[in-house]
Write a protein that binds this DNA or RNA. Sequence first.
DNA 1: TTGAACTGTATAAAATAAAATTACAGTATG
DNA 2: CATACTGTAATTTTATTTTATACAGTTCAA
Lengths: 139, 139
Amino acid sequence: MNSDFTIAVHSLVYLANLPEHMASSEAIAHNVTTNPARIRKVMSTLRKKGMVKTKEGMRGGYLLSCDPKNITLADVYHTVSYGTLQPNWCTGDPDDTCPISSNTQVVMDHIFNKAEDCYELYLSQFTVASVLDKIKTYS
Amino acid sequence: MNSDFTIAVHSLVYLANLPEHMASSEAIAHNVTTNPARIRKVMSTLRKKGMVKTKEGMRGGYLLSCDPKNITLADVYHTVSYGTLQPNWCTGDPDDTCPISSNTQVVMDHIFNKAEDCYELYLSQFTVASVLDKIKTYS
DNA sequence: TTGAACTGTATAAAATAAAATTACAGTATG
DNA sequence: CATACTGTAATTTTATTTTATACAGTTCAA
């Protein structure tokens, strides 16, 4: 499981907290403690789903393109990490004559797929704004 | 994310399908397509929670110790993989004066912890018996 | 009572995945 | 036209996962 989801949430919260809702990949990377290239990759996929706008060139960077109250963590998860609940490793052998060996993987696939829906439903209760609020109560 | 959960479920289903509900690590490993040492490690943790009994020595192996209808995937997940929803990587810097940098990880920790509960609730609808039934409908 | 067939567990090696680094073309700004 | 950005790809480094190997301890049965 990679950390793109955590990075995406952190980046969006960071933007939401800024008066202009805008920052460069370098500023975000410093806050998140990672490198600018990784931030750009994650933000680039968020842009494709319309969550942020990007400005290239000098004084460019990333700008929140909607109200932090309207971005749920489910939206973020779906955009950057959908499918990562299931491990890559496959169990059994699809060509084995034993149905347990050949079909367990297929059944687990279904279970993991529905788990994603369940996970997203859970995450839909949180928004970028609500996460920011929680962070502030710790300060 | 490692595959211990998938391996545990597959192994238990395999046992449930056998008339004596019993098999050696070698037989299970062959069905799962992994090595006996790994099966023994996973089964060993299931034993500690009372899901299987083990017989050492000649003609030994693993024996289901309860009705497959009474083992939910939530039980299995909790036993072998609890906590793996959260990535190991940590965001931000706890010593940074910026609360976004220092507190986002803590808030994400809470969100991931509650997600585990949600995930287990979802998994509690499945049992070793119900998974076995589904596998058979594919045959 | 001995040896074959098991489990339990640890360690090391190999394979895979994740993260960081580097590089550079493209773009806006002043 | 130089500077400060993004977009993206390739490479290297690091961490994790999986496999392989080994061996002590246990049980059974001849």
